[in-house]
Simulated scan of single mutants.
Amino acid sequence: MTVEFVGMIGTRDVSETRGPTGPPIDPGYVRRFSRVHEDGGFDRVLIGYGSSTPDGTQVAAYAAAHTERLGLLIAHRPGFVAPTTAARTFATLDQLSGGRVAVHTVTGGSDAEQRRDGDYLGKDDRYARTEEYLRILRRAWSSPEPFTHEGRFYRFEDFSLLAQPAHRIPLYFGGSSPAAYRTGGAVADVFALWGEPLKETAEQIAAVRASAAAAGRGLLGISVSFRLILAATDELARERAERILATITESKGGKGSFTGTRPACWAGRTPRTPARNACTRRPPRATGTTGHCGWPRPGPAAPGAIRPSWSARPRPWPGSCWTTSTSASPRS
């Protein structure tokens, strides 16, 4: 079983626990952030999407130019460019980066956020559009001949790509609703989940598997997202987590929560890695601020059930870690 470590990069220094510093786009920060992930042994970095944030594809291209092997997981929201345009964009970047592109599909769970980009479709229609969109991407990236499409949301004739991607671009997919499980199970390669307690994680994996089976597909990859707080010991990590939570709670007007359980992605640690503990309350729904630890074939989400094989490269997260949650916004 293979385990991937997926971090995240942004265009300036900011997090969920402190305010932004520097200009909205700081090229030097992007370079340093990307190289730290590559030097730390991460497999990919997520570049987020938001209606007001810098364009993720261009950020990914800049990061690719300053790294050699780091994978680029680009968050992408269907509905704002034609799928044929997206197919060209990602195929071109995949060629120029040497086959390092993956696409993380964010259908969108907030009507207000969608309308900032001019999208007034309801949630169910958005998921239907996403499925059609991703099927077009996959066909565009694999069809040796021009093809025509006439669907509910998209229509075009004799489309083809002069340059195909350098590799089979993985399609990641996020969401935690029945519509998301249904759509992701039908078209995604990897389904991304928020870090929940193990029981809830197992339920979500089962829903994704059932959707994939209903679509006549095999097991999908599973990615699980956690916020990590590092310290030398469990006790120091817990103290640091409590301080961070207190700061966030105060800034949120007294609304905060903190509970703990061991996450599945650490359950199979090897003896040579330090003991870890973590708190896996659902994190805030802030687009693009998540790091993922995932594995292509999900195992049962129970303590000790996942036995990842660790590589010999430097560990990206030494010591103990805790994650916190301040509030749960609507699930997408």
Rank of each mutant, 00 (worst) to 15 (best):
P23N: 06
Y154W: 07
G22H: 06
H104R: 08
R129L: 04
P23E: 12
R12C: 03
I248S: 05
P284I: 09
P263I: 02
T201F: 02
G28M: 10
T280M: 07
F156E: 09
G7P: 04
R12N: 12
R217V: 10
G109P: 14
T11Q: 00
L46W: 07
T261L: 06
R168W: 02
D119N: 15
R269H: 12
M8W: 10
H292A: 11
A202P: 03
L96A: 15
T233D: 08
T105I: 15
R240M: 08
S52W: 14
T17V: 10
P165G: 07
Q95C: 13
P24S: 08
F226T: 14
G216L: 10
E145F: 07
G109Y: 03
F147S: 14
P263L: 07
A75M: 08
P83M: 00
R18V: 02
A264Q: 05
I136Y: 01
H37K: 15
G28T: 13
P24V: 14
L219Q: 13
G253Y: 02
A140S: 13
D94M: 11
A91N: 04
Q114P: 11
Y62C: 12
G218Y: 15
Y120I: 02
L171W: 10
P23W: 09
K199D: 11
G319N: 01
W322R: 07
L193F: 09
A215E: 06
T21W: 00
S142Y: 01
T261S: 11
M1T: 10
R182M: 08
G98Q: 12
T84P: 12
A267S: 14
S309G: 05
V6G: 01
L73M: 15
R135G: 06
H76F: 15
G118A: 10
S15L: 01
N277W: 13
G22K: 04
W141E: 10
T57M: 12
P20Y: 04
R31G: 01
L228D: 06
R276L: 02
L161V: 04
S110P: 09
P308I: 11
A163R: 13
F159P: 00
P54C: 03
T289L: 02
S160T: 11
E200C: 00
R240P: 05
A91T: 06
R44L: 14
E203L: 12
C321D: 03
I244C: 07
G19L: 04
A91L: 08
G268A: 02
T324H: 06
T53D: 13
G122Q: 15
A214S: 10
R115P: 10
G299R: 07
S225K: 06
K199W: 02
G268I: 07
T84G: 11
D94Y: 09
E239N: 08
I229Y: 04
A140W: 01
L72C: 08
R31L: 11
L161S: 09
V101T: 10
L245P: 07
T289I: 03
L228T: 14
T324N: 05
T53Q: 14
V3R: 11
T326R: 05
G56Q: 01
A128G: 01
A192Y: 06
V59S: 06
T21Y: 00
G218V: 13
R307Y: 05
Y133F: 14
T280A: 03
W295T: 13
F258P: 04
R31Q: 11
D117P: 00
E235T: 09
A163F: 13
L193E: 05
A166H: 12
R313Y: 05
N277K: 09
T67P: 02
E250T: 08
F226V: 12
L161H: 03
S309Y: 05
F153T: 14
A64E: 13
